[in-house]
Nucleic acid binder design. Structure first.
Lengths: 137, 137
DNA sequence: CCATAATGTAACCATTGTAGTCACATATAC
DNA sequence: GTATATGTGACTACAATGGTTACATTATGG
């Protein structure tokens, strides 16, 4: 379970909320659909709240709602809110500073990774949470 | 160090080999440039060998060479050879089978992930190991 | 034929990131 | 005031990765 499922869970959670956007949804209810622990959901939605995607209400009758219309929340917003670890790829931590090849590789790889990243952003931006909900049928 | 640096190390190793493609390169020499352990390099190049990107020779004067011209080894080839864990993203391991939203999410997310992947492939295909080497100056 | 030098791999340890869990402070509704 | 939420810190469990040691295998070259 070491894979990065945060993005998937976040999209799932937002879809659950957006599916009945007039109601408040508790972390417990969302966790029921995702099959995980309510705390995991609260931690994740806490990140989304900081990014301005959801709002939370404490206390009885509390829970989560969308902070803006589902059509205006893109998967890129979700990705940025959740993906704190940087990019998809990673460079090797160390390198031999004395090797001329190694010294240049760092910059070259950075360029390659940046170009790849720039291709996925538009794709994620094209899909909104509303699109996801519409596919729920 | 939990990030996925295999791709970066593989590209680095291939660049080292391609930079002097007339010589054999030992795992020890390559590891020196990457600043890691020779076994790590051998394990990685073993995967690349299975994918037909490099060839290895046992014994004294042994080592690694490219299996085909650097211009014909694309970063997509490297990516496929190395990235055994599937895609960039992952679904949540479990889900609530009784929840109609959860049941549909799996398919929807698969579609999203596939569309994103399809965008990065052409970008990786566009760059060859020869291109990397030419950037080494 | 034997020493040397290299890959291929299995086995193991250390580190790290994620998920999951418990506990509790805080806030809100009725 | 009680019941019901979120927010968060602390902790455990687990899986993936990288690193290391060890050793079998294979090839070269005197």
């Amino acid at each position: 379970m070491a894979a990065n499922s945060k993005f998937a869970v976040a999209v799932h959670a937002l879809a659950v909320i957006a599916h009945h956007s007039d109601e408040r949804h508790t972390s417990r209810a969302i966790a029921g659909s995702v099959a995980t622990n309510p705390v995991v959901i609260r931690r994740l939605l806490s990140q989304l709240a900081k990014a301005g995607l959801v709002e939370s209400a404490h206390g009885a009758k509390g829970g989560f709602t969308l902070a803006k219309p589902a059509a205006r929340i893109t998967l890129l917003d979700v990705y940025h809110a959740v993906e704190d670890c940087g990019g998809l790829f990673a460079e090797h931590a160390k390198k031999n500073e004395k090797c001329p090849v190694a010294c240049r590789m760092s910059g070259i790889l950075k360029g390659v990774f940046a170009r790849v990243q720039s291709k996925i952003a538009p794709e994620l931006k094209r899909t909104s949470v509303a699109d996801i909900v519409s596919q729920l049928g």
